[in-house]
Design a protein around this nucleic acid. Sequence first.
DNA 1: TTCAAATTGTTAGATGTCAAATTGTTTGAC
DNA 2: GTCAAACAATTTGACATCTAACAATTTGAA
Lengths: 155, 155
Amino acid sequence: MMDRIPIGLELNLTSRTVRRAFDSALLAAGGSLPVWLILLSLKRGNVDNQRELAEAIGIRGATLTHHLNGLETQGVLTRRRDPRNRRVHIVELTQAGEAFFARLREAAMVFDMRLKVGFSDDELSLLARGLNQLRLNVAGNTKEAGKKPPLLPDD
Amino acid sequence: MMDRIPIGLELNLTSRTVRRAFDSALLAAGGSLPVWLILLSLKRGNVDNQRELAEAIGIRGATLTHHLNGLETQGVLTRRRDPRNRRVHIVELTQAGEAFFARLREAAMVFDMRLKVGFSDDELSLLARGLNQLRLNVAGNTKEAGKKPPLLPDD
DNA sequence: TTCAAATTGTTAGATGTCAAATTGTTTGAC
DNA sequence: GTCAAACAATTTGACATCTAACAATTTGAA
């Protein structure tokens, strides 16, 4: 009812602020946000190719290529053609890459603790669900917009 | 308790996805996200100088200067020195700028409706408060981290 | 078998963003 | 009055990101 700042603006400002703080924390460990996201996704092993990797972290394939070039030059990872499908590049961490990942993970874990201050488990879940709904609402197909179960009980 | 995706990753992915969709909507109206944020903040009239304007929309002063240069070249706005404090630039929309703003506002309002689908007023408030808390948690001074009132009633 | 369409990744060119250094202005201490 | 410090904005040089166009490969249908 009351006039509210559009949720999109709120999201944008929060994301920029949090990202800047996180980036600064990673910088102290020699990394950056996109690099961390790439290494984390690779270690999780739940992506099969660069297209999926790029989508998982919210960047375009071209941008991913750019970062992979840099990381390969630094000796953090290697790329080789998948013999079973030569369109695909198999991306693998080197030993140095593993050590680098461990260092960044330290910084990321510390930051995550700081970010969650003041949130209960339920509140965190709810926030995550809200964010997820925003994402669904702008997804290409309008199928998932306006999901079934309300986020809060309907008293 | 259960393993959860870090809220920072969730925030990052959501923000990128939503931003891309919004940017695309603004592009159809001849604008972009940073341009829209600048014009909106100027129209609201709650910032006194470029430093405050940049902070309000979450970019750095240098980035703002860059956009203002472009907008001034396009004839959307003018800059002149404040005679009472010649360090300050007074930024004003031209008539063409007002028309441009009106066009972008149309697109922004349509998008905001789409983004809010499935959210009740209370849910939207809660989401905004959660985002605000994240912002406080990474703010330079740790004073506001871990605020008093819980986001959800403590049953 | 062959070839058009789909898929994967890269390149090229443009824009958005930032930190650091710089220019001009104001403020405050003396 | 003078000058150092703070302040507002700009410039510079670097990265991050995007879209569009492209090259190589795979797939599927005739």
